[in-house]
């Protein structure tokens, strides 16, 4: 698989925290879980376009800062009973660096 882009080192994303990533016009939210996995979603809540990068990360989901929707980090889907989804992007970590494919 080609086109992995290096983003930053793992340490630059706080544990249970987030970072904003810009790629041209595209806003992407990066999330680091408790067990040091990193996920990336389009930075738009399916509800009212809230910036997910400003949310709180718990387990495998992020809570949107605007109206508390919970969005799954793996697939970008809103958790029940809410319905909707935002795009996920593949992320990998290699020797301490975070890579994304857009």
């Amino acid at each position: 698989m080609e086109n992995w882009l290096k983003v930053c080192s793992l340490e630059e994303i706080p544990r249970l925290g987030t970072r904003q990533l810009k790629h041209g016009e595209k806003n992407i939210a990066l999330f680091r879980t408790d067990d040091d996995q990193v996920f990336a979603l389009l930075d738009r809540c399916p509800h009212k376009s809230g910036p997910l990068s400003q949310g709180i990360v718990c387990g495998r989901h992020v809570t949107c800062p605007l109206h508390n929707w919970n969005i799954a980090l793996e697939d970008g889907k809103a958790m029940a009973p809410d319905v909707g989804e935002t795009s996920p992007y593949p992320v990998k970590i290699e020797s301490g660096s975070v890579f994304i494919r857009l």
């Binding site: 249970l16 408790d34 949310g55 709180i56 990360v57 718990c58 387990g59 809570t63 508390n68 919970n70």
Partner: peptide, 10 residues
């Protein structure tokens, strides 16, 4: 839950 939720953590 592993890290609580957006209601109990704060």
């Amino acid at each position: 839950t592993p890290n609580g939720c957006a209601s109990c953590r704060p």
